[in-house]
Computed example of a mutant assay.
Amino acid sequence: MSKSIVVGGALAVLGLGGMAFGAWQIQESRQPQYADITGVEPLTRTVETPREVCEDVVVQRQAPTRDPHRVVGTAAGAIVGGLLGNQVGGGSGRKIATLAGAVGGGFAGREVQERIEAGQTVSTTERRCHTVTDSHQETVGYEVSWRYDGQVHTTRLDERPQGERVQMVDGQPQWGAPPSQG
């Protein structure tokens, strides 16, 4: 064999090997790149909603009086006091005792009527309302951490990412693209 054929063949083999290696590198660089998702934390806010709560409540009130000037108690007390005063003494002393008994009995009867009426109550039902506030947590987004090329990055997303990794294009995560299972 001639030396040129051997050298030519060797160069051809090397050339083909170099082309194959170059094609492999091109194909390898075209392989999708992925970043590993290392954490997903929901971001929440408290939502408060006021609402009115009403209930019927039984209430005790003082009964209205039919005799606001206490005439009945004063008159009854004066009669009883006069009768008792009339039992004391004789002559003009009896008249003074009757008069004093009537005056004292009138005051006493008035007080007795006031105390009796103060203890008389009526029950009514009232509707009482007040405002209460209900609260609940609402998710407004997600804080997502991912590791790519040895560094940890964090971003905020409106939607929870799917899967455990995210596809990278030109060093940027493609959150809308579903990760392949490779």
Rank of each mutant, 00 (worst) to 15 (best):
M1E: 13
K3E: 10
K3M: 14
V6Y: 12
V7R: 06
G8R: 10
G9L: 15
A10V: 12
A12T: 08
L16K: 08
G18R: 08
A20K: 04
G22R: 10
W24T: 03
Q25T: 08
Q31H: 12
Q33H: 10
Y34W: 03
A35L: 15
D36V: 15
D36S: 11
I37D: 05
G39V: 05
E41D: 08
P42K: 07
L43P: 00
L43S: 01
L43D: 02
R45Y: 00
V47I: 00
E48P: 00
T49S: 00
R51T: 09
E52W: 11
V53G: 09
C54I: 08
D56P: 02
Q60W: 15
R61L: 06
R61H: 12
R61S: 14
T65A: 09
D67W: 04
D67S: 02
H69P: 01
A75Y: 13
G77A: 14
A78C: 12
A78S: 02
V80R: 07
G90W: 10
G90S: 15
G90F: 10
R94N: 07
R94K: 12
K95F: 15
I96Q: 01
I96G: 01
A97F: 14
A97L: 07
L99M: 09
F107T: 03
A108Y: 01
A108C: 04
G109N: 02
Q113S: 02
E114H: 01
E114P: 00
E114M: 08
R115F: 04
R115P: 01
E117N: 04
G119S: 07
G119H: 04
Q120N: 03
Q120F: 00
Q120Y: 03
T124C: 13
R127H: 11
C129K: 06
T131D: 13
T131H: 05
D134V: 01
S135G: 00
E138G: 00
V140W: 00
V144C: 05
Y148L: 14
G150E: 05
T155E: 14
T155I: 13
D158G: 05
E164K: 13
R165N: 06
V169D: 07
P173Q: 08
P173M: 14
A177G: 10
P179Y: 12
S180Y: 12
Q181V: 15
